[in-house]
Design a protein around this nucleic acid. Structure first.
Length: 219
DNA sequence: TACCAGGAGAAAA
DNA sequence: TTTTCTCATGGT
């Protein structure tokens, strides 16, 4: 199923979001490895809960792949508890860390092609297309457009997509329309998330806000 | 109390 | 091949 998106409208949406919210400086992490950890932990989970789990990892000195792998699985799961699905995510994080360390860490991985990186990530337990693209874009600066629930909701609301298109078709459509531009994709996705979070906050005047047409909560 | 949140994998149909 | 179920905490 091929999806075609109008480049001018996509850029117009971006300009409006950027004008309203400004640069977001994403991903909210200090190291590429922390991006990877956050990408796994945020699966179907509010970011506020992910922050608690990352704080636990940091307090335990486990925010490096080697330190994380040294933790017994039950102990790791206990640290991840606030992020939900903690038993599942503990196993997923360990799988990613095993690969990360075996591959030689960020220094070596950053020299891999985007295609090779994506194939490797998708082969890992617990890494699906969205998590892989989060990692590719925000940990490795590769030009992939992340398709998450917010993105589907927003562009379906704008009438540009239906919303249930296959992940790969939507990703390809955004990348085709906007061109391979990692800094743009970085900022665009961050702005979509910012909009969604803003829209989800109770605001008495939300119904009249200038971005009502972009507001997922107004759907 | 009930529902939802930045998915993914396994099992069932 | 597609759909459904499971994993789980914290905020509203």
């Amino acid at each position: 199923m091929a999806v075609v998106l109008p480049p001018r409208r996509l850029r117009a949406v971006y300009r409006r979001l950027h004008a309203r919210y400004g640069p977001q400086h994403w991903w909210p992490a200090r190291t590429p490895f922390e991006v990877i950890v956050g990408a796994v932990l945020t699966q179907n989970t509010a970011w506020s809960n992910v922050e608690r789990a990352i704080a636990n990892l940091e307090a335990a000195g486990a925010l490096t792949p080697e330190a994380l792998l040294a933790l017994p699985l039950p102990e790791l799961a206990a640290l991840l508890r606030p992020s939900g699905y903690f038993n599942v995510k503990a196993g997923r994080l360990r799988a990613v860390c095993h690969w990360y360390v075996a591959a030689g860490g960020h220094g070596r991985l950053r020299r891999w092609s985007g295609g090779r990186l994506r194939t490797a990530l998708l082969g890992l337990y617990g890494v699906g297309p969205e998590t892989a693209d989060d990692i590719l874009l925000y940990a490795f600066d590769r030009p992939v457009f992340v398709i998450d629930a917010y993105t589907r909701r927003l562009f379906a609301r704008l009438g540009l997509i239906v919303g249930d298109e296959p992940y790969a078709a939507l990703g390809a459509a955004f990348e085709q329309a906007l061109g391979a531009d990692a800094p743009l994709f970085n900022e665009y996705h961050a702005l979509i998330v910012r909009l969604a979070k803003e829209a989800c906050r109770p605001r008495p005047r939300c119904a009249g806000c200038c971005l009502r047409r972009l507001c997922p909560s107004a759907v």
